[in-house]
Design a protein around this nucleic acid. Structure first.
Lengths: 97, 97
DNA sequence: TCCTTTTAGTCTATTTTATAGACTACTCTA
DNA sequence: TAGAGTAGTCTATAAAATAGACTAAAAGGA
């Protein structure tokens, strides 16, 4: 991956926080809100983008009649994140060389 | 470094491109312009921010009566970039665990 | 029954940031 | 004297992020 083709998705702190939160497993809207300390509006907007870009998916269920949303990273999301980190590692190494 | 305290500087593709270009050595305004394919206005604005945040420094000289600008990463810039990459590596590893 | 809490958002207005490109300024070369 | 190269600045516009008021539906307690 070239830095010039870096996906837009990584250019935002909140989106990176969400990715970071979900990499260890699925989380609900409320859990993400606590973890990222974001407002509902902003979190909702960034989750929508992440979903549109195919980085996360969302499962909505009712558990004992309570709504239970569950956000998780997709395979695409994980592999693109890996690629991004590897690209940055390469940049760093190009200095050491 | 916590992802929540990720510096704003890394949240922009052009700024990351500039850092990536300078990590192998100093470059002029024109060289950065070619490398990043940015417009003058945008490049100028982002260079100013990078300088204000202490990530780059600029040396201006006249070499055989031609202006010769020379942008380079500061120690702070390099170490903060390292920290950023290392933070992302940790996030990735937390998944593999 | 009515009020509050929990869960999960949406919607819109505002603020912030990024971006393009016209313009300035100086020097050298043809 | 008219470009071309170097190095930007300035301003208007566009795009993005952000806050927070608002909606909705069910549970649980007074």
């Amino acid at each position: 991956m070239e830095i010039s083709s870096m996906p837009e998705v990584f250019g935002n702190k909140l989106r990176l926080s969400v990715i970071s939160a979900l990499i260890t497993g699925e989380k609900s809207f409320s859990e993400l809100k606590k973890y990222t300390d974001a407002t509902s509006g902003n979190l909702g907007a960034q989750l929508l983008k992440l979903e549109e870009w195919g980085y996360i998916s969302c499962k909505k269920e009712f558990v004992s009649k309570k709504p239970q949303s569950s956000y998780m990273l997709t395979e695409t999301g994980i592999s693109n994140f890996k690629e991004y980190v590897e690209m940055l590692e390469k940049v760093l190494k190009s200095m050491e060389a």
